[in-house]
């Protein structure tokens, strides 16, 4: 029975990407006469995109699963990636160091954001606007508006390597699942999700926890950022909180990942969800849908998913209510007999 349930859960988990693959493959084949994945390069692209969106989704999940939506996360990604990359470039270091320095810078920016949050205790969305404006300004000023340019910089090739991307994604996934499942931090996380008040009364330092959440989120988006920047050879320093688009577009992956992860674990869920969604948008690209239309389709599906998520217990509740009504009718009958 137990094994059966595990098998069922595994089936449930992998049904998502599989179904999506089949759907897009069919569409591609009949509409465009080609396969969804026709070569190793397609696999490579899919892996990279999945990796990047999974890492961002992980980053989002740190704060979002405690009910905080940090509007400055995109700005942190920008600041951490650009400044970390600039430091590594300045020091003449090679690929892995770029990753490390970006990660460290991300941690720093995340940490400061978290500190400001627990000190001011302004709602995260409002705080995100203010601090996001500041963070965007930092890399812009430091790079004189140039952003990070990795074109022709030696040693960054490794960052775009498929195996390396997979390795980073796995490291991040393992890191996240370890930290969420095996460490004190993870236990606190679940407790705070359940009830902030009880968690606090039980001696959990919710403030320190929040700072850590912000910090990890900042570090992770910068890991995704540098991989992205290495592939595109650049990351331009944008202003006006435009930086948030990348992060917001991965929210779907995070939410879907949370849903799928209920039956396995969050790490698997997020990766599977990212893969599913990337198969989806890759398929749409192959069908030569313009970028705006792809986005429209994607977001519409997201809305529907959110509606589903908000009402998923509706039927269960209806059922319980019906059972109760039946009980009431029975009671009435008994009373009328009496």
């Amino acid at each position: 029975m137990f094994r059966n349930r595990k098998a069922k859960d595994a089936l449930f988990t992998f049904a998502f990407p599989l179904a999506m693959f089949v759907l897009m493959e069919l569409l591609c084949f009949f509409l465009k006469g080609r396969h969804l994945v026709g070569s190793l390069l397609d696999v490579k692209t899919l892996v990279r995109n999945t990796g990047i969106s999974a890492i961002i989704a992980f980053a989002l999940s740190f704060n979002l699963s405690c009910g905080r939506f940090d509007l400055s996360l995109g700005a942190q990604r920008l600041a951490g990636t650009i400044i970390g990359g600039m430091i590594a470039m300045e020091l003449g270091l090679s690929g892995l160091w770029f990753l490390l320095f970006s990660f460290l810078c991300g941690l720093v920016f995340g940490f400061i954001t978290g500190m400001v949050f627990v000190i001011t205790r302004v709602p995260p969305m409002v705080l995100g606007v203010g601090i996001g404006l500041v963070w965007e300004c930092v890399p812009y000023t430091m790079s004189k508006g140039k952003g990070l340019n990795l074109f022709g910089v030696h040693g960054t090739e490794i960052l775009t390597d498929t195996v390396f991307t997979i390795a980073v994604m796995i490291v991040v996934a393992v890191f996240v699942s370890l930290i969420m499942n095996r460490t004190k931090f993870g236990y606190e996380m679940k407790a705070i999700q359940g009830s902030q008040l009880i968690a606090r009364n039980s001696g959990i330092n919710i403030f320190r926890h929040a700072v850590l959440c912000y910090m990890f989120a900042g570090g992770l988006v910068c890991v995704a950022g540098i991989i992205d920047a290495a592939f595109q050879t650049q990351m331009s320093s944008t202003m006006g909180l435009a930086s948030n688009g990348v992060v917001v577009s991965n929210m779907f992956a995070m939410m879907l990942g949370g849903y799928i992860g209920e039956r396995s674990n969050q790490a698997t869920g997020v990766i599977v969800a990212s893969l599913t969604l990337n198969l989806f948008s890759y398929g749409l690209t192959l069908m030569e849908l313009s970028e705006a239309n792809t986005s429209v389709v994607n977001q519409t599906v997201f809305v529907l998913f959110l509606v589903f998520l908000a009402n998923r217990y509706y039927f269960r509740k209806r059922k319980a209510e019906k059972a109760r009504i039946a009980q009431a009718l029975e009671q009435r009958r008994i009373m009328s007999v009496a």
Binding site: Y187, K190, A191, G194, I198, A199, S202
Partner: peptide, 16 residues
């Protein structure tokens, strides 16, 4: 004073 989404053991040792 218990948190619903975690296990019994986790509740017993919450914060410790």
């Amino acid at each position: 004073g218990t948190i619903p989404n975690i296990s019994v053991a986790e509740n017993i040792f919450l914060g410790h």
